[in-house]
Amino acid sequence: MPTSPNARHQAQHRPFDILLCPLCHDRLKPVGQALRCPSRHSFDIARQGYAGLLAGNRRSTGVDTASMVQARTLFLQTGHYAPLARTLARLTAALCPPDSTVLDAGVGTGYYLAAVLKALPATVGLGLDTSPYALRRAARSHARAGAASWDIWQPFPVQSHAVDLVLNVFAPRNGPEFHRILQPSGALLIVTPTPQHLGELQRHLGLLSVDPAKEQRLRRTLSARFQPDHTEALKYVMTLTAQDIEAMSFMGPTARHINPDVLRRRIALLGTPFQATASFVVSVYRPR
């Protein structure tokens, strides 16, 4: 039976149930096309479905632009990162109880959050990100997904111990806030690229490389509040077209460091199809 418009509207509001007012820290409730607290602070829900919680001078650097988000959408649609999405869905299904809540910190377009929610029929997900261009897509990535604008480096406008799993894929990590919002029995699921990730393209195109000490630094940063529970390495070869390589190059930080025309000339010299390695570490942490 098709989902009624009213039921879909209610499903989209469910992820907002864990939100707090970023000004007075009281609970927010949906009122029409806004979220409001008892002190009458109000935050609009954009027509695309995400809640705008960033106010005043609360802005962060490095916000993904419209062109970066478009490039990411195009690349993810190719399916080259589908093995990673399937891995996250499998792990989350084993980690989360029925009717759970997932928070994706740095949700981007919602690609991975949607994959997780598809594997968990009774679970709702909330994504936080600073980019309005990404949030527009994240809010519509799944019927049980919600999205809100927020700077991951700041204290989250989320109730304490309200989340069963925090998902963090290629995004900043706020260990103290991850710990605060997680249930004591919850889990933190993090994805980081390894130094081998896209190594072939780094050499030819001058893409930003991955710090070899990244994984060790991650564990050290989280060690005061989290203990490692499970780690998986995921490595495979992608066969990329010139269009795939261009979209992948422009969807991340490299887009801010290389002139687009220079990058396109380098891609043209590669010869395609081109094989490149995808290499990730997927780690599960438990709160101490």
Rank of each mutant, 00 (worst) to 15 (best):
M1K: 07
A11I: 07
Q12D: 15
P15N: 14
D17Y: 11
C21G: 12
C21N: 11
L23Y: 10
C24A: 13
H25E: 13
H25R: 15
H25V: 14
V31M: 09
R36V: 15
C37M: 12
P38S: 08
S39R: 15
R40W: 08
G49P: 05
L54N: 08
A55Y: 12
G56T: 07
T61Y: 05
D64S: 04
A66Q: 15
L74T: 14
G79P: 08
A82H: 12
P83R: 13
L84F: 09
L88F: 12
P97F: 05
S100E: 11
G108N: 10
G110V: 10
Y112D: 08
Y112A: 07
P121K: 04
P121V: 03
A122R: 04
T130M: 09
Y133S: 10
A134S: 06
R137S: 05
R137Q: 06
R137V: 01
A138F: 01
A138D: 02
R140E: 00
R140C: 01
H142Q: 02
R144W: 02
W153L: 07
W153A: 06
W153C: 02
Q154D: 04
D164S: 08
L167F: 09
N168Y: 03
F170A: 14
A171Q: 10
R173S: 12
F178L: 11
R180L: 12
Q183N: 15
Q183F: 13
P184D: 10
G186A: 08
V191Q: 04
P195K: 03
L201F: 02
L201S: 04
G206A: 03
V210T: 04
A213F: 00
K214N: 00
E215F: 05
R219S: 01
A224F: 01
A233S: 08
D244K: 05
I245A: 01
F250M: 13
P253R: 12
R256E: 02
N259C: 09
P260L: 12
I267P: 03
I267V: 13
L270T: 07
L270M: 09
P273C: 08
T277N: 06
S279F: 06
F280S: 08
S283W: 07
S283I: 07
S283G: 09
R286I: 06
R286W: 04
R286L: 09
P287T: 07
R288I: 13
